Structure formats: C-alpha cells, structure tokens
Computed example of a mutant assay.
Amino acid sequence: MTQQTFIITGAFLGMLAIILGAFGAHALKKLLSVEQLKSFETGVKYQMYHAIVLLLLGFNYTFSTSTMYWCFTIGILLFSFSIYGLVISDAKGKKLKVLGPITPIGGLLFVIGWANIIINAL
C-alpha cells in the first residue's frame, strides 16, 4: 500500500460521499420515507468519517498499515453501500434482504481498523 493509495482512495470516497449525500437530500427525498432517508444518511456519514480516516492515515503514512487501509476501504463498501442498496431497493418495493447481513460485516471491519490504529499506537 502506498501513501498515494491511501490519499486517493480517501479523497475519492469522500467526494463520493458528498455526491451521494446531495443525491439523497435532493433526488431521493421525495422517494424515501423519513426512516429510509435517515438510514441513507447514516451510510453517507460513515462513508465520510472513514474516508477522512484514510486521508489522515495517508498524510501520516509512516503510521499506516495495509490492514488499516483494507479494513476501512472494504468496511465502507460493505457497510455504507449495503445500506444504500437496502434503502433504495426498499423504496422500490423489492428490498434486497441479502444485503442485511453484509452491513454488520462492514461495521466489524471498521472496528478492526480502529483496533489496528490503537495497536499500532501502542
């Protein structure tokens, strides 16, 4: 994993969080219930939080590990994107229930990534 990989991935996922947040707030607002919109926003928030973590790790590269990179990157994909899929499919009346068990796996990867930061700091 290179420093550039951390920074580019973090910046791309952060940019995508802004785009998806705007999409949710404007285009989906009329299609989603309040509860669905709140779930969508949760996915966006967690995506942004962890994109920022990737950037910070990239700018402090000597502290970073490839385990951190993969935990946060795959965590975003599994956690946030499964929420996006669940919400949009539910709004269309065809909820993709198969995505439900994927969300906590992404959350677990976030926890492992954070634990790696703690371990690396010790």
Rank of each mutant, 00 (worst) to 15 (best):
G10S: 14
I52Q: 01
M48H: 05
S66K: 14
H50K: 13
T42H: 03
A25C: 05
L57D: 00
G43K: 05
K45S: 10
V53T: 14
G10L: 14
G14V: 10
K38V: 10
W70A: 01
V53E: 04
N60H: 15
E41V: 06
Y46I: 07
I19S: 01
L28Q: 06
G14N: 06
L31K: 15
L32G: 07
S33F: 08
S64V: 06
H50V: 08
A51Y: 00
S39R: 09
L57F: 08
L56E: 02
F40R: 03
F59T: 15
A22R: 01
T42V: 09
A11N: 02
G21Y: 03
L55F: 09
T62H: 11
E35H: 11
K30Q: 14
Y49D: 05
L20D: 01
H26K: 08
L16G: 02
S66Y: 07
M68I: 03
T65G: 11
L28N: 04
A22E: 00
L32Q: 03
K45W: 12
A51R: 02
I52P: 00
L56A: 15
I52K: 04
A22L: 04
C71S: 08
G24M: 02
S39L: 13
L20G: 00
T65Q: 10
N60Y: 13
F40A: 06
A11T: 07
L54F: 12
M15K: 10
S66L: 13
L57Q: 03
V34W: 09
N60G: 12
K29S: 05
S64C: 09
S66V: 13
V44I: 14
T67R: 11
Y69M: 12
L28H: 03
K29Q: 05
L16F: 10
G58P: 06
M68E: 00
F40M: 08
K38M: 13
Y46V: 07
A25L: 00
T67A: 14
G58E: 00
A11Y: 01
E35Y: 09
F59A: 13
W70I: 01
K30P: 08
L56P: 09
A22V: 07
G10I: 14
L56I: 15
F59D: 04
Y49W: 13
N60L: 14
I18N: 00
L56S: 12
L28S: 05
H50Q: 09
G24A: 05
T42D: 05
Q36Y: 12
Y46G: 02
K29D: 01
S33D: 05
L55R: 12
Y46W: 12
G21F: 01
